[in-house]
C-alpha cells in the first residue's frame, strides 16, 4: 500500500463525504481509508471519537458509549455492559468473571456448569448437593430434622403432619399447595394450605410451561395461562415480560425470531406485520403500506396492478410509463406466462 506521502492529493477522497483534501490538511488514515478529521466520527452521535477510540460493527464505527448502548449486552449479575467475551447462559449474558457457581462462587465460564433447581452450579457442588439428597431442613414448628422434602408455608419449612387441608381436613405432606391470593378474599383470610385434590378443584390457573399454579401475575396467551417468567419465545426462550409477541402454529416468538423464521416483514416499513397481511410478488405489506411503487397510491385486494420488477404499479402509473417501456414489459410478461 503506498504511504500517504507518495499518494497524490488529487486522487485521495474522504470515505464519508468523498470530497478531496486541502494541501497540508490533517488526514485520518484508518486501515487505508482516508477521512477529514471532522468526518471521522461516530456513526450514531456524529461526534469525534474521544481519544480516538472507536469500535466497529458491520462496517460502521461507533464511539465507546454508543457501541455499548447499541450492541453490548448487559451482565446478568453486575448490570454493566459486557465488552469482549460474553458468556450466554441461564437465559442471560454475563462477564466471564460474573458467572459463578451459586454455592462455592467458583468461575464457571471455562469449567462448565449444571443447572440445578434454577441455579447454576459447578460440577462438584452439583454432585455434593445431589448426594446429600436434600439439605437437612429443620421444622419451624417442632425444630426437629425433616427427613425428605419439607412442606413450605409462609416462607418457612415444616413437617407436613403439623397441618391439615383447609377444605377436607386430610393430613398434609410436601405436595400441599399454599394459596396466597384468591379473588374475593382478603390476603390475610387466605394464606391457607390445601391438599392437591382440593387445590385442583379451586380452579387456580396452572402455568402452561411448568404446570404449577399461578398465584401472582398471570399472562394469558395461546389459549393458556403462564407465569410471567415462563411465557417465553419458542426460539430463544427469553421471557417477553410484556413485550409484544407473535404467534404462529400455537407457539409464541419474539419479534426478532418471528421475522427470522417466518419473514413476514412489510416491504415498505420493514416491520413485522401484526395485523392483516397483503402478499403478492413474493413480498408482504402491512395494511397501511400496500401501495403502488411508482406513485404511493394505496392499493386494495381488489385493485388491478401491473408487475414491474416484482413490485406493483397501479393502472394510472402503468399508463403513464413511456410507450417503449410498456411494450417491453408486455413482452416480458408473455415470457413469464409462457413458462
Amino acid at each position: 500500500m503506498p504511504g500517504l506521502a507518495t499518494m497524490s492529493l488529487d486522487n485521495m477522497f474522504c470515505t464519508r463525504c468523498s470530497d478531496g483534501f486541502e494541501p497540508n490538511e490533517k488526514i485520518v488514515n484508518s486501515n487505508g481509508e482516508l477521512w477529514h478529521t471532522n468526518c471521522f466520527v461516530c456513526a450514531q452521535c456524529f461526534r469525534v471519537f474521544p481519544e480516538g477510540i472507536f469500535y466497529e460493527f458491520e462496517g460502521r464505527k461507533y464511539c465507546e458509549r454508543d457501541f455499548q448502548v447499541l450492541f453490548a449486552p448487559c451482565c446478568g449479575k453486575c448490570g454493566e455492559f459486557v465488552i469482549g467475551r460474553v458468556i450466554k447462559a441461564m437465559n442471560a449474558n454475563w462477564h466471564p468473571a460474573c458467572f459463578r457457581c451459586e454455592e462455592c462462587n467458583m468461575e464457571l465460564a471455562d469449567a462448565g456448569f449444571i443447572k440445578h433447581g434454577g441455579r447454576a452450579l459447578c460440577h462438584s457442588c452439583n454432585a455434593r448437593i445431589k448426594a446429600d439428597g436434600l439439605q437437612n431442613y429443620m421444622c419451624h414448628k417442632c425444630h426437629g430434622v425433616i427427613d425428605g422434602e419439607p412442606l413450605r408455608y409462609r416462607g418457612e419449612v415444616y413437617h407436613g403432619y403439623h397441618f391439615t387441608c383447609a377444605t377436607c381436613g386430610v393430613e398434609l405432606d410436601h405436595t400441599a399447595r399454599e394459596v396466597k391470593h384468591r379473588p374475593g378474599y382478603a390476603a390475610n383470610d387466605v394464606n391457607n394450605l390445601f391438599c392437591l385434590r382440593c387445590h385442583d378443584k379451586m380452579g387456580i390457573p396452572i402455568c402452561g410451561a411448568c404446570r404449577r399454579p399461578i398465584e401472582e401475575r398471570i399472562v394469558t396467551a395461546l389459549g393458556k395461562h403462564w407465569h410471567v417468567e415462563h411465557f417465553v419465545c419458542a426460539k430463544c426462550e427469553k421471557p417477553f415480560h410484556g413485550h409484544r409477541h407473535y404467534e404462529k402454529k400455537g407457539l409464541a416468538y419474539c419479534e426478532q425470531h418471528y421475522h427470522q423464521l417466518f419473514g413476514n416483514l412489510c416491504y415498505v416499513c420493514n416491520q413485522v406485520i401484526a395485523g392483516d397481511v397483503f402478499t403478492a410478488l413474493n413480498k408482504a405489506w402491512c395494511v397501511h403500506h400496500f401501495a403502488c411503487s411508482v406513485c404511493d397510491a394505496a392499493l386494495s385486494t381488489r385493485s388491478k396492478f401491473y408487475e414491474y420488477d416484482e413490485r406493483p404499479a397501479c393502472r394510472r402509473c402503468y399508463e403513464k410509463f413511456p410507450a417503449e417501456l410498456r411494450r417491453r414489459l408486455r413482452r416480458a410478461h408473455h415470457y413469464t406466462v409462457r413458462r
Binding site: V294, D296, C317, F321
Partner: peptide, 8 residues
C-alpha cells in the same frame, strides 16, 4: 422525510 418519491 422517510419516503421521497420523485418518479417520472
Amino acid at each position: 422525510l422517510e419516503i421521497l418519491n420523485l418518479a417520472n
